[in-house]
Amino acid sequence: MKLLLPVVIGVLFGGGTYLMLKKNILKLVLGLGLISHGANVLLISSGWIGAGAVPILGQDGTEGFVDPVPQALVLTAIVIGFAALAFLLVLAIRVYRDLKTADISEIRGQRG
């Protein structure tokens, strides 16, 4: 169980990077999505202390809960990532429609 989160994070980052290296524009978007999720999980893992209970008011004591702060943070991060990804998708479609291609190397035609 302790190994699970690192493995998940690793898989997300690795898969994301792999997808980003592809030439297809949609795969780039998906890759970025995976990476941002990897980062989210990483953030969650920073407050993870084993099998803690849900940090909700009303229970007694302060022992045995997971740290609520990363969860609050990750919620924000998810919202932001969601918005940015949605925007990127819209743009990807626009690019596809303008250039009639999903090949990234075509977009980089500009002088760099």
Partner: peptide, 13 residues
């Protein structure tokens, strides 16, 4: 509001 706007925007084509 955002989700529906986004949907209409994407579905427009």
């Amino acid at each position: 509001g955002v989700c529906v706007s986004l949907m209409t925007l994407l579905g427009e084509e």
